[in-house]
Write a protein that binds this DNA or RNA. Sequence first.
DNA 1: CTCGATTGGTAACAGATGTTACGGTAACAG
DNA 2: CTGTTACCGTAACATCTGTTACCAATCGAG
Lengths: 195, 195
Amino acid sequence: MARKADKPAQEAQLSQAVWDVLAGQGLDRLTIRAVAAAAGCTTGLVMHRFPHRRALLLHARGLLHERTRARVDALEADAATPRDSLRAVLRQALALNEEKVGETFVWLGFLAAAVGDEEMNALHRAKNQAWRERVSRLVAAVAPDWTAERVATVAFGLIATADGAATLASADPVAYPPATQSAMLDTTLTALGLS
Amino acid sequence: MARKADKPAQEAQLSQAVWDVLAGQGLDRLTIRAVAAAAGCTTGLVMHRFPHRRALLLHARGLLHERTRARVDALEADAATPRDSLRAVLRQALALNEEKVGETFVWLGFLAAAVGDEEMNALHRAKNQAWRERVSRLVAAVAPDWTAERVATVAFGLIATADGAATLASADPVAYPPATQSAMLDTTLTALGLS
DNA sequence: CTCGATTGGTAACAGATGTTACGGTAACAG
DNA sequence: CTGTTACCGTAACATCTGTTACCAATCGAG
């Protein structure tokens, strides 16, 4: 072998650069050169780590999924009751702070990029299915006597509410501040008998 | 004057072309030439109608808003009771048919394009505020004894749910078919005491 | 120490993109 | 009928994009 190069670390750093550009400048400015500049390297390194642009995006997309999964796992493990767990997991999907606003922008950018890109779309569907199963499991734990159909319907509603609220809040933080998002989530959970 | 040219009609046709490209090929394929091809004209006409690309996108974005506003107005006028009105208006925000799936893709594309584009973002905020006021008004009509704060919170929740469901369903129509979306909305409305 | 392999930067290339300049053409005014 | 003016297609331009080819630097193996 030759030089010591921590490939996974570099790939993670490049993925981070993809996030930064995506959250800060939008999808159309997401170019190889912009990513390289954000990562503090040249386009050469980028193209040595990833065969082409799509591979870079797909890796960054997977890493985003992995990061949120780890965070949600920790939240779920730390919660005392199923109710707390469900609420905490849904709260982390909201755009309650600057970091989450950026993350929602990134999520939105990837979703928009998935239009007309089957592989990206498949990645989204897989991640979303895991997310749906998790919320369904938590709902079932809080309401053990519900039918599977009602659990699925309510889980869908909660996911739509949380993702939709994060999207709205990211695009208009003034109209939907953290306290408003939080109150809305609690109101929804209470109405559904889950709080 | 010279040749007869129905400018508004052409602008609308070009906006429709923007719409088609955005829904069918995604945001990164939304180029002047692609729009011209979809509209069946040349890039010359496009650049004669609009000073630059951004103006074209902004106009198309406004037209999308206008179209949905007209549709929602009609639904609200046709409804017999406030409850029916609220339900009908929220249902049209879902992705219940192929056309609405495409429209959601377009909405998503514009939202992603608004990242890092202040003018586009301002347009989104204005449209969203009108949407929020409308839903708030309908909720208040169904539940006249609620406080203004509860009305606002519930309206936010309903908008987030509908928009989120439309987004999820557009990206994964198999997992979230029309019947599932519809059932979810009714479940949410019932839980909130609005059906 | 030397050779080879690996790493990563430089620069070039082909293609696409937004935009502009120009020319022909059709309709209306007189 | 004719001149003028709005209309719009053609083609060029400069720029930006993804991608590739090439080369210098660096480190481990023998």
